[in-house]
Design a protein around this nucleic acid. Structure first.
Length: 452
RNA sequence: GGCGGCAUGGCCAAGUGGUUAAGGCAGAGGUUUGCAAAACCUUUAUCCUCAGUUCGACUCUGAGUGCCGCCUCCA
């Protein structure tokens, strides 16, 4: 097991990962609210944490990854009404859509995907516990609220002083709240809305309650890492911490990790502003692995500027690595004097990853290795193995497309023409081969046909 | 207004208190090749501004400027 340093949002510092249980890492990632297809911002988050999980696994940690689906909330109810779809059908549809997208991106499945609606009794128990401890109260509007004034460390994750928050920034200052920052734990249902019975009447849970409950129920009272998008830090994660820690006095998570945003034209990609592309949109144009590589290239905490050009560039870069794998057969003997070079690059690659998952640094070494392999025509398997850690090289290295006889014939005719120095005919044949959907490349060992 | 982050060559993007400031994409030149493709070699920066700390800062501190995010649902 290699020591790993991770930037902890809680301390705002890089810390050594010290799992509660040796060799195991419990990782909870905030999942999506399933009322629509996922956009590139979601892809960024889940590709980032997938990479993190793969690296941890490679370094010898046994990762227990749990990720929720929020399958009940206002947006789901609204969308169900708008589209005249039963809400349960809606959520099932978009859970399916999520998995399609993640499979295309090469994201490994979590160990568990708990649904919010499967944890209603546990949420009710948590809320009741908070009421009993005088940390939650029933407002005059029948909502159950969490009272942040009774939570001493409120704000510790997002590092904000509540008095300094811009008052006008909050929409709907509800008079039923004791403090405007109090948040809803339980919400009474309107007629025809999905609802569950509770001590406070028929209703549904507030948004922040599920994660705390699931972590406790599925994983234990404290976990090693809790992750999600930068935007979840406040209020979502702050509120999770408040509930969980006020009740149990145990830390909800030791390390909090947050990924940066995808931006379009230097603005956050977001559904509310409408400037987003769905994953499915982009996959119409490029392969999943190209999109994955584009999202991976940048450190997980930095913003990514989304653009067609950027994706194309990532595709070119990835192609460079694939070319090496295609051109140099695996398991060729590496010259003895080059072995230290290979080892040094491999070590540098791993060292970078162990330092807060510095993938950009690691990729630099990967490209260096690619050049080394091309130069010495050996060592392809080392590149391949390192790429596997990042979830790359899922495409077949050798084409599995069978080459039609007539194309092979044309290629052979071209060889004859070249031998006879009839280059006009040779070029003509190459054009014909290209028109048939194949590309011909000359190598010292003869021609090579690949699908174009 | 409060809090947080960022500012490195045409574009993307690592990194270090002091040797030649990674890597990718694009461009230029070259080698190889009849050509093409791939590959290889060469080539493009003093790191936003100002002040300070230091023998020495791009790397630390302060101020400034610009951009982004959160404070409202959000990966």
């Amino acid at each position: 097991m290699r020591p790993i340093h991770i930037t902890n949002s809680l301390s705002q510092k890089k810390e050594l990962l010290q799992p509660l249980e040796k060799g195991k890492v419990s990782l909870y990632i905030c999942g999506v609210t399933v009322y629509d297809h996922c956009h590139i911002g979601h892809a960024r988050a889940y590709v980032a944490f997938d990479t993190i999980k793969r690296v941890l696994t490679h370094f010898g940690y046994n990762v227990n990854h749990v990720q929720n689906f929020t399958d009940i909330d206002d947006k789901i109810i609204n969308r169900a009404n708008e589209t005249n779809t039963p809400w349960k059908t809606l959520t099932e549809t978009f859970i399916g859509s999520y998995f399609e997208d993640m499979d295309a991106l090469g994201v490994i499945r979590a160990n568990q995907y708990p649904l919010a609606t499967a944890f209603i009794p546990q949420m009710i128990a948590l809320i009741q516990d908070l009421i009993d401890k005088n940390i939650a109260y029933v407002g005059s509007d029948s909502n159950v609220y969490f009272s942040i004034d009774n939570c001493p460390n409120y704000g510790k994750l997002s590092h904000r002083n509540l008095d300094d928050q811009e008052s006008g920034a909050r929409v709907n200052v509800v008079s039923a709240k004791k403090n405007p920052m109090d948040f809803v734990l339980w919400k009474p249902a309107k007629p025809d809305e999905p609802a569950w019975d509770s001590p406070w009447g028929s209703g549904r849970p507030g948004w922040h309650t599920e994660c705390a409950v699931m972590v406790h129920d599925v994983m234990g009272h404290t976990i090693d890492i809790h992750g999600g998008g930068e935007d979840l830090k406040f209020p979502h994660h702050e509120n999770e911490i408040a509930q969980a820690e006020c009740c149990s006095n145990n830390a909800l998570a030791n390390i909090w990790m947050h990924n940066g945003f995808v931006q379009i034209d230097s603005e956050k990609m977001s559904k509310s502003t409408g400037n987003f592309f769905t994953i499915k949109d982009v996959l119409q144009e490029v392969e999943g692995e190209t999109l994955r590589f584009f999202l991976q290239k940048v450190h997980y905490r930095s913003p990514i500027h989304f653009s067609k050009e950027g994706i194309q560039e990532a595709g070119q870069a990835l192609e460079r690595l694939y070319n090496t794998l295609r051109n140099v057969p695996m398991n060729q003997q590496i010259p003895k004097n080059q072995i230290p070079e290979f080892n040094a690059l491999e070590e540098a690659f791993l060292t970078a990853l162990a330092d807060d998952f510095n993938i950009s640094g690691a990729l630099g070494h990967l490209f260096d290795m690619s050049r080394l392999i091309n130069t010495h025509q050996a060592g392809s398997e080392r590149l391949f193995n390192l790429g596997q850690i990042l979830g790359l090289f899922t495409k077949p290295i050798q084409s599995t497309v069978s080459i039609p006889k007539n194309v092979t014939q044309m290629a052979q005719d071209r060889q004859s023409a070249r031998a006879a120095k009839d280059f006009a005919k040779s070029d003509e044949l190459r054009d014909q081969i290209l028109a048939s959907g194949f590309q011909i490349k000359d190598t010292p060992d003869g021609f090579k046909l690949t699908p174009s």
